[in-house]
Simulated assay, not measured.
Amino acid sequence: MSDRRLEIDGVSKRYGETVALREMTFDVRAGELFGFVGSNGAGKTTTMRIVLGVLAGDAGAVRWDGEPITLETRRLIGYMPEERGLYPRMKVGEQLTYLARLHGMAAPAARRAAERWTERLGVAGRRDDEVQKLSLGNQQRVQLAAALVHDPRILVLDEPFSGLDPVAVDVMSEVLREKAGEGVPVVFSSHQLDLVQRLCDRVGIVRSGQMVACGTVDELRAGGAVRLVVDVPQAPPDWTGALPGVRVLGHEGSRTELELGAGADDQAVLKAALATGPVHEFARRRPSLTELFRSVVSEGEQR
């Protein structure tokens, strides 16, 4: 049975004494948008380079459709490197046609693909300009076109939204959704966690070269610490007193946001709130992906 997934299975990588990746494991399924997030130096780019064959892992395997990735398989991947990889003095249209031909497309088909993607990404009017003469945002659009021009079966994008204005972010998001809709597995890294939360089917959080959390946004948020928002207009600022396991995150007017640690009792919080007078709101609030990410990263720093 065909298993059209990109699998990263137990991939490790060292540079001398520095461990860049430690048994990195996750998969990206057909038609899925997978957000790959972590602090700078967490191992995201190293993982992507190993998928592409730019680097070799010390252990583990990368598979596509259940088979080890080969040089021929890698021609099916659309890759967008973080440091970008365009020829600055080459004209946009010529460059995209050239890159499409490197992936095996015939010249007429390569030219048509270059025209289609520059049109789609809003840089058709710059086809005859050298890349170095474009704004950084337009260079970013051309770089995405370079990843798409050969009709890839897999997309691996390193910080594709970096430096884009809101309109370009919307265009990029729409294109990635379209490719996923065609059954392409799409993995991208980004520090814009609100965008990842909105766009992705699943998210993997990387810390110190390891995958420390992976799942849908809802699954990850459900696994975070319980937070409560309590509106107690007559309560003093220290109304939570010495409630065990309860941490005050902040106040906004009469509303207090609390985080409940292990063993904390939300009913004890409610009882303490009612003791101050009327309670206008008592609700659980799920952490955003950004808050969850901060929690996961800070947890690692404290160890």
Rank of each mutant, 00 (worst) to 15 (best):
A145S: 06
L121I: 01
S295H: 15
H280A: 08
P166K: 05
P236I: 01
E17W: 01
E130L: 11
D128S: 09
R198K: 14
T73W: 14
G35V: 02
R303G: 15
R285I: 09
T25W: 08
T216P: 13
S288R: 15
L220T: 05
M24C: 11
G253N: 05
D58M: 08
M24V: 07
E178G: 08
N138W: 06
K91Y: 09
R84M: 14
R29N: 11
T276Y: 00
R177C: 14
C214W: 01
G137T: 05
G253P: 08
S39P: 15
S12N: 04
A213Y: 02
S162A: 13
V186Y: 04
M48K: 05
G261V: 10
F161R: 09
L292D: 04
Y15T: 14
G66K: 07
P233T: 05
L21N: 01
E23L: 01
L136Q: 10
P185T: 03
R5H: 11
G250F: 05
E130P: 02
Q192N: 12
A20L: 10
A145M: 04
V203I: 06
V186A: 10
K133D: 12
R75A: 15
D3N: 03
V51L: 11
F34A: 04
L292E: 02
T216M: 07
A145Q: 00
W239R: 04
A275Y: 04
